[in-house]
């Protein structure tokens, strides 16, 4: 299915957020996830289902002034 990740359309083969993060090899400790404009706390990743057309933002804190 096709969803938008960080502004880009991408085809993914899982409906599970946890699985997707795992596949992308992202460090979960610093990851901030916004799903359809709603922030998803880490303890809700496992229960969050992704669907066609969803908008996902994957963010982390970086250096800034």
């Amino acid at each position: 299915m096709r969803i938008k990740i960080n502004g880009r359309d991408q085809d993914i083969d899982t409906g599970s957020l946890t699985e997707l993060i795992d596949q992308m090899d992202l460090p979960p400790s610093s990851l901030v996830v916004e799903h359809n404009l709603r922030l998803v706390p880490q303890d809700q990743w496992a229960t969050t289902r992704l669907e066609e057309g969803d908008v996902l933002e994957l963010l982390n804190f970086v250096g800034g002034g």
């Binding site: 992202l26 610093s30 963010l59 982390n60 804190f61 250096g63 800034g64």
Partner: peptide, 29 residues
């Protein structure tokens, strides 16, 4: 201050928050 950015899927960076002690107040911009 710290900033929030879309992750860089290519180069994995360390977590900036790990460099900041607990007793320092974070000011996200």
């Amino acid at each position: 201050t710290v900033a929030l950015r879309r992750i860089d899927q290519q180069s994995k960076t360390d977590n900036i928050l790990d460099s900041i002690p607990q007793n320092v107040t974070l000011l996200p911009n």
